[in-house]
């Protein structure tokens, strides 16, 4: 019967739309199921269309107040969240370290409670201390989005990286992703390891031994679809890779904690044309920014044909809109 097919398609479609329970916080990707991640990436794809409309603003978060509290410098993440919030018609209040009462010794919890009393629904925060967002999730009624805490997690970055890979390669499952550089201090790497492995990508970490966290393999060795491995030799690590993700290297840390000088690092770990050549012909470079051109990534490669760096930034807005949209149902019941 010819009419069977559309019905089955409709059923499959309905099955994909299994309603997820409301979500209150986005702290890391460890408590996201693959289904939830897929649904957020799909929503982001829908929301990307909104950004191309003549009037690129929709009323989904009208009447919501979002507070951004960035106690560590950031340009792109904050701007990206702000653009996302405004495209969804939320009101946004920006606080930073220097103009907040943190200087007068007001505690993080006090600041958040004050903002909650003023009617904030969602707080998007960055803090140098790992775990700080968890503190607010515990001690306030606000919805908390972690925009980076210490070395621990940066979930929105990992989601936009997953989105970018899915857009480029059609799917994340089965991809081979090499993460290169200062994994030890990288919250981006930690959240990406969760996200990529949950979605079925194999992750290889490549860095000098001193810049790899000892806990990495044990802490993340749970039963996840994607594998995690370590390969100190970058030339071997990139063989057959689909994505080479370079991390920002900080010179100070390289000398003190990496026990390596910059010259040696560049020779051993810079992502350059020669190394990209050893990866798959379709392989792409990614970087969470800000990039040190000529250090972790060679000049020319960073903004060349094989780079997804600008695409990552562009996709960040739609992915953050999807996160805010995900929280809207649970964020209305503050207090």
């Amino acid at each position: 019967m010819t009419s069977v097919k559309p019905v089955e398609q409709a059923k499959q479609h309905a099955a994909q739309k299994v309603a997820l329970p409301p979500r209150k916080h986005v702290l890391d990707l460890d408590d996201f199921s693959p289904e939830e991640i897929s649904q957020i990436l799909e929503t982001a794809g829908v929301l990307a269309e909104v950004l191309n409309r003549p009037i690129s603003k929709v009323p989904a978060l009208r009447g919501k107040t979002i507070l951004t509290l960035f106690l560590e410098p950031s340009t792109r993440t904050r701007a990206s969240f702000e653009r996302a919030a405004k495209a969804l018609s939320a009101d946004i209040i920006n606080l930073s370290g220097s103009d907040s009462s943190a200087k007068k010794g007001e505690s993080l919890i006090d600041t958040a409670r004050t903002m909650q009393a003023m009617g904030a629904n969602i707080i998007i925060m960055r803090h140098s201390m790992s775990g700080a967002p968890y503190l607010l999730a515990q001690h306030t009624d606000l919805s908390v989005i972690n925009a980076g805490d210490g070395w621990h997690a940066h979930p929105s970055q990992a989601l936009l990286d997953l989105y970018t890979m899915r857009e480029k390669f059609g799917k994340v499952a089965g991809l081979k992703v090499v993460i290169v550089g200062d994994v030890l201090h990288s919250r981006v790497a930690r959240s990406n390891i969760w996200g990529l492995r949950k979605m079925g990508a194999d992750v290889t970490l490549s860095a000098p031994p001193t810049l790899l966290p000892e806990e990495t393999l044990e802490a993340y060795s749970g039963e996840l679809p994607g594998r995690l491995s370590i390969e100190f030799d970058l030339d071997k690590a990139v063989e057959g890779a689909d994505v080479v993700m370079a991390l920002r290297i900080q010179r100070e840390r390289l000398a003190t904690e990496g026990s390596m000088n910059l010259r040696d690092y560049i020779i051993a770990y810079q992502v350059n044309d020669e190394r990209m050549h050893k990866a798959k012909p379709t392989a792409m470079l990614m970087h969470p920014g800000p990039m040190n051109e000529g250090v972790e990534v060679s000049h020319g490669l960073a903004y060349g044909d094989r780079s997804l760096v600008e695409t990552q930034v562009k996709n960040g807005v739609a992915v953050r809109m999807a996160l805010l949209y995900r929280l809207v149902g649970a964020s209305g019941v503050a207090a």
Partner: peptide, 12 residues
Amino acid sequence: LSQGPSPQLRKT
């Protein structure tokens, strides 16, 4: 939208 889980969006 504030009254429950966000409905899954489809492409406009």
